[in-house]
Design a protein around this nucleic acid. Structure first.
Lengths: 252, 252
DNA sequence: AGTGCTTATCGTCAGGCAGACGACTATGAT
DNA sequence: ATCATAGTCGTCTGCCTGACGATAAGCACT
C-alpha cells in the first residue's frame, strides 16, 4: 500500500530544554533572548527543530551542547564526567502555541552543576541563568527592579513542569548529584536539596540519611574546606539511582 | 519575518494509547490487530494521527473513545463517572520507528475499570484485552499455546514504559482507584495492587493503610458480598490524589 | 596562642509507621 | 451445623525520622 501524504497533517517538531542548575543557593534555569518574531526580545527556553535524521534524544543533546557546551550522558550510563543529566520531560502540542504554524515541542529536562557563563552564539547578552522564581512570575519585577516579561510561547508552563519534575525526582532518586561537581561534600549536596525545595534541612539528619543509604555516596578519601569550617569528606555519586526509602520533603 | 517552510522537516504526529485494566487478577492492555502494512496482522497499540486542529490530549481522548467508548476525564477533574484516567506518557521519535515516513508518536496512558468486550469498528477479532506479560514476551507462546508475535513498531517499549509508570504511580497516588468501578471494597482495591505489582499483600495491613490515609477513601454506607465471604464496606475514591506517606511496594 | 565563628560529624531519644500475625465477625455453600 | 471465604480490629516489634545536644576541626581575627 503506497504512502499517502494527504492522509495526515504535517507538523514541525522541536525540542525545548529546561536546563536547571543551582547557583548562589537558588535554583536557576537557562534562558535565551529571542532574536526573531514572534516574541522578539523576550526570554525563552533554548530549543530548536529536530532534524530529519535525528532521534529526539539526539536533538536534545545537540541543542544542549550548542547552548552550554555540556556533554549530556544517557541516564543508563552511570559515568558522570562533565556531563549533565538529560531526560525527556513532556510534549506540548496545543494548536495555537506557535502563531506561525503547527509545532509540537518535545521538552527535555537537563540538570547540570553550576557552570561559568552561558554561551549562546558568543553573544553574552542573549543567554543567562535566571532564578526560576524570577522567570515564572508573570509581569512582576525582578530583583534589580526592572519589569519582567513572561516567557515566550508556553515556556512558563514547560519550565514549571520541569521544576516540579526535578523537585519530586530528587525525593526518590539520586538525581540531586547531577547538580554537583564530580566530587562534592554532604553539605554541598544538602544545599542542593535546600535550593531546589526552598526549605532548610537539618544538617545532622541529612548527613545520617545520605551516608546511610547504600550506594548513594562513595567516599573518595579526600577532604575539602572550600565551604569554610571543618574539613568535609569528599564523595562521588554511587551506583544507586533509586533511593529507598526516599528522601522526605518537609511539609509546607 | 515570513515563515519559511523549508526551514524544518515535516513530521507526522500520532497518539498511541496504553490502555490498562485489571481482569481476572491480571494486568491487561488493549491491543488491536493491524489491517495494513507495515506489520499487517500483528498486534499493536491503538492510536492514530493527530488532527490539524486538535490538542494532543484531545486526540488521545478521541482515540480512547473510538476504541473503548470510554469518556476520559482530566486528572484535574475529580469526578470519576464512567471515565478513565488519561495522562501523557512519553514521546517516541526514532527516525526509523515507522518505515514509511518520519512519525513522532505521543504515547498516552489510560487506566480503566474492567470493561466488557472491546469494540474496534465492530470487528470483534481486531481488538482484545491481553495480559501485559503475554504482550511483552517476545516470540514466545501465549497461554493457549499459539505463537506470539511481538507488538508492531516500538509498541513493546511503549507498553513497557506505560506499565512501569502505572506500577510506580499507584505507589504514591490514589490512581489505583481508576482501575475500580465507582464503588468498590478495600479487598477489590487490594487485588488491583496485587495484580499491577504481581505480589501478594497482607489484607490486614492493607486495610489499615488505605482506611487510615485521609482523603483516600470515603465510605458510601453500602455493603456488598459480590466477592463472597463477610459483607464488605463500599467506598468511593476520595479527593486526595497524592498518598503521603506512599504505599510501599514489597521488595522482590 | 587564644577566642570566636563556621561547618562537619557523632549520639541520643521519642514518636510514628510498617511488617508479622493473632483473633474475631459475618456471609454463603455443603 | 459445619466449613470455607473474606473482612475488620488489635497487638507487638523493629526501623526510620525529626528534634536537638555535643564534639571536632578548620579559618580569621586579636
Amino acid at each position: 500500500m503506497p504512502y499517502d501524504p494527504s492522509a495526515f497533517p504535517p507538523f514541525a517538531v522541536t525540542v525545548d530544554l529546561v536546563v536547571l542548575t543551582v547557583r548562589r543557593h537558588a535554583l536557576c534555569a537557562l534562558a535565551v533572548r529571542r532574536g526573531e518574531q514572534p516574541f522578539q526580545g523576550r526570554w525563552a527556553l533554548p530549543g530548536g527543530f529536530v532534524r530529519s535524521d535525528e532521534d529526539l534524544a539526539q536533538a536534545a543533546e545537540r541543542e544542549l551542547a550548542e547552548e552550554t557546551g555540556l556533554c549530556a550522558h544517557d541516564p543508563s550510563a552511570p559515568a558522570q564526567g562533565n556531563g549533565a543529566h538529560l531526560e525527556q520531560l513532556a510534549t506540548y502540542g496545543d494548536p495555537k502555541r506557535d502563531p506561525r504554524m503547527r509545532v509540537v515541542s518535545v521538552a527535555h529536562l537537563a540538570l547540570a552543576p553550576d557552570l561559568p557563563a552561558p554561551k549562546a552564539g558568543g553573544d553574552a547578552n542573549s543567554a543567562r541563568w535566571a532564578p526560576v522564581e524570577e522567570l515564572l512570575q508573570q509581569g512582576g519585577y525582578g530583583r534589580d527592579g526592572e519589569p519582567v516579561a513572561p516567557l515566550a510561547f508556553d515556556h512558563a508552563q514547560i519550565l514549571a513542569d520541569g521544576v516540579e519534575r526535578a523537585r519530586s525526582k530528587i525525593e526518590y532518586s539520586s538525581l540531586a548529584t547531577a547538580f554537583c561537581p564530580p566530587e562534592f561534600t554532604v553539605g554541598e549536596l544538602r544545599r542542593v536539596y535546600e535550593a531546589v525545595w526552598g526549605v532548610a534541612l537539618d544538617p545532622r539528619n541529612f548527613h545520617r540519611k545520605v551516608t546511610g543509604t547504600p550506594g548513594f555516596l562513595v567516599p573518595t578519601g579526600g577532604t575539602t574546606t572550600r565551604q569554610g569550617g571543618r574539613p568535609a569528606q569528599l564523595f562521588r555519586a554511587g551506583g544507586a539511582t533509586l533511593l529507598n526509602p526516599p528522601m522526605l520533603r518537609p511539609e509546607v
